[in-house]
Amino acid sequence: MSTQVAPVTSAGAAVPAARLATRTRSVPRHWLLALPFLLPALVFYVVFLLVPLLGTLALSLTEWTGFNFADIRFVGSDNFRAMGQDPVFWQSLRHNVGFLGGSVVLKTVVALLLALALDQRLPFSNLFRGVYLMPAVISLVVVGVVFTLLFSPSLGLVNPFLTAIGLGRFAGAWLGDPALALPILIVIDAWHGFGLYMFLFISRLIAIPQDLHDAAHVDGAGGWQAIRDVTLPLMKSMVAMVVLLAAIESLKMFSLVYVMTKGGPSHATEVLSTWAYFQAFTANKIGYGSAILVVLLIITFVLAYIQVTRFQFADEA
């Protein structure tokens, strides 16, 4: 996804990376030499990634119940026009945008603040950052079910807890409340994923040369001032990258919604991918479902394109 963050060469510290590859001179028949090495990866990549990708595009132009290949009808852009008459589609799109905005802001802010705080190198910093990354390795299905139980209005933890500390009047239906369900999902998603971005920030902070800190210190800039004047300006490109990564990641939202609310109550948490899933596998509208996925793909690729072109040659350190 991002060549630029990758201090991957450091992974192979055994080899001095200083000298980058001098390319082998072109020799004829190199395709024949390369092919055996490329073939296994290429076969599976083409058949099980590129073909379905093109398949999604092709199916989006058809009308099909999915049962019999004889029934596929080419309908051109009809599916995309049908979106205009589908209020749930627009609702889903709005929720995707809400997810994007909410999770980008939450994850970036929390991750950056914690990275800066952990960069103070206090005792146990490594322990804390290890804990903060823990949710990221746990399946979103597990996360979804645990929080569903936690927020369960009758038996869960949240309502009894609020009652116990005298805030019983704030006890609510939580995931059953159309106004609260989406914000709750956004927060849980941030709970799950902020650690990854925190580590990206930490990797950038570590790369800031110590003499810059020393220079700030000599100039009499301490603590917060040093962070504001020295550290933050150097973090700009990483912040921009994290924002884009988190935005792209937010579009993948599916598991949490599927597990926790199934898009409900009354479509209050429906997103494009769950709506496409419903259209294809419950309503048997393969074409329309695929068209919704194409919209999701287009948004993803626009963001990914910005990310790649903006950061491919970004200067790190």
Binding site: L49, P52, L53, L54, G55, A58, F254, Y277, T300, A304
Partner: peptide
């Protein structure tokens, strides 16, 4: 960059 859910129907 391809999100898995974009491939499930055709997949």
């Amino acid at each position: 960059m391809v999100p898995p859910q974009a491939l499930i129907i055709s997949g």
